[in-house]
Amino acid sequence: MSAVTQSGLHRDTKGSKLVRYSLIGISLLFVFLMLILPLITVITEAFKQGFAVYSKAVTDDYTIKAILLTLEASFFAVAINTVFGLCAAWSLTKFKFKGKKILATLIDLPVTVSPIIAGLIFLLTFGRQSPIFPLLQDWDIKIVFAVPGIVLATIFVTFPFISRELIPVLESQGTDEEEAAALMGAKGFTIFRRITFPHIKWAFLYGVVLCAARAMGEFGAVSVISGHLRGKTNTLPLHVEILFNEFQYVPAFAVASILVMLAILILVARSVIEHKGRKK
């Protein structure tokens, strides 16, 4: 009896074959046009004049510098957001305090604010017009149009990624296991290492990967604060823009292909992590 109703329901919710195939078809077509085609274009444009030109563009001094700067900014963004993300996720899920809702909302701010505005915020906070600019000069600290500014902007933009991955997992876990461990005499760090971290490990790694991906690709905020100094404050996305604006199409696409490959690498890492996380 119940089996009959279930399969009837099954047919109703899944719709007819026509609906099914047209929905799948639309999705595939859309993905092909919007994602696959541009990717293929990037790669073919990059190799248009042969491998020699490609490798010259990729091994160009400025390109290497841009790669290193991108990796540096991403590294700091991931490291700092890891610490912040763990702290924020932990305090939001395990403690009760005033202003908790406000903190939870503010964490999402970087996602809703346009990156250009994020860049401007730092430009105005640390730039020449800022009241703290003389102080920074006295201490000989350069932020705007320098590497620290780029790192700051990248951190700002990638701010919520790790904490947002951790919060739902920590919430679903509750505090029973931690309490049980504490009752048996385990101290804070042992509890974190033995009980909490194994639980959030995969969500955490996933957050790190997302954070790194976003950090490498960041253009808007970094563009405002970097000053586009070649070999100094030029990240990979900015470098692509400069080459493109100078009509150096092949090098522009070649450098872009590096970003594409990094993105694919991250995608692979992501699905491996997702797969392992689900198995656990």
Partner: peptide, 9 residues
Amino acid sequence: FQSYALFRY
């Protein structure tokens, strides 16, 4: 504990 709170890992 009511939910046993066994360490699942």
